[in-house]
């Protein structure tokens, strides 16, 4: 009786909340499209101002680059917290991995995954993609190593120190480009105009591709560290 009463109360409260939400949404003004405002400005002059074909990347790494810096700082904070909480020793938990067939197949596929992640990172200003997306694909390689080949293999090939170095290099790239913006253009994280070549080529859009590479390294190494820290303590020794 007591338990049922609690559940019924919760359901009634949530239904009332749903009705209140719905009424509030009825009061909202309709979306007017892109007639004016900042979105229209970015669509009209984003290409000529930044040289980046991908306007979403232009927003992320040029107009709101400071926000992206804060975002990568959030990842850094999460990684620091997880490593502080979970890892007291940086020794791997060994496991034998999956079967021979899976190991051989992924041995063939893994270089192409790496190539795809590098493509997604470096072409972030031309095609869909960018540092965050490519970095996640990059972290998938480390996760494949841990699951398929065993975490001892991952430890040997791609040690935690190396991951930490990658993350530091990524963060320093981002910060260095920001500080270079102060000295060369006058503002923090201003797009470095002298790097711009012909629009549509790989070396264009000022400092956006380099920021993309830094963010890609940072996100890839950060997610790999998170996964490694979690798998380290939760899987028991098998051999």
């Amino acid at each position: 009786m007591h338990k049922n009463f609690k559940n019924i109360t919760a359901v009634v409260v949530f239904i009332l909340m749903g009705i209140a939400f719905y009424e509030n949404f009825q009061l909202m003004p309709a979306y007017k499209g892109l007639g004016e405002g900042v979105s229209d400005y970015i669509i009209r002059s984003g290409l000529s101002e930044t040289g980046s074909l991908n306007l979403i990347t232009a927003v992320l790494y040029d107009y709101r680059a400071f926000d992206s810096l804060g975002e990568s700082t959030v990842i850094f904070g999460a990684v620091s917290g997880i490593v502080l909480i979970l890892s007291r020793k940086m020794l791997p938990v060994s496991s034998r991995g999956l079967s021979f067939i899976v190991k051989r197949t992924l041995g063939i596929i893994t270089p192409f995954i790496a190539l795809f992640s590098i493509y997604v990172i470096t072409h972030g200003h031309l095609t869909p993609g960018g540092g965050f997306q490519g970095g996640v694909i990059f972290a998938a390689i480390s996760i494949i190593f841990s699951i398929v080949y065993g975490s001892a293999f991952d430890y040997r090939r791609y040690s935690p120190q190396m991951k930490t170095a990658f993350e530091t290099v990524g963060a320093l790239t981002f910060l260095g480009l920001g500080i270079a913006g102060i000295f060369m253009e006058g503002y923090f994280l201003h797009n470095l105009g002298f790097l711009t070549a012909e629009t549509g080529t790989l070396i264009s859009a000022g400092s956006i591709p380099y920021i993309n590479m830094g963010v890609g390294l940072k996100v890839g190494a950060g997610l790999a560290i998170i996964f490694y820290s979690m798998i380290q303590k939760t899987f028991k020794e098998e051999i």
């Binding site: 900042v38 306007l55 927003v59 959030v74």
Partner: peptide, 14 residues
């Protein structure tokens, strides 16, 4: 609109 998509990317990562 590119701005909500960029904001959503930020939100997904966080």
């Amino acid at each position: 609109d590119p701005v909500p998509q960029a904001l959503t990317l930020t939100g997904i990562v966080i």
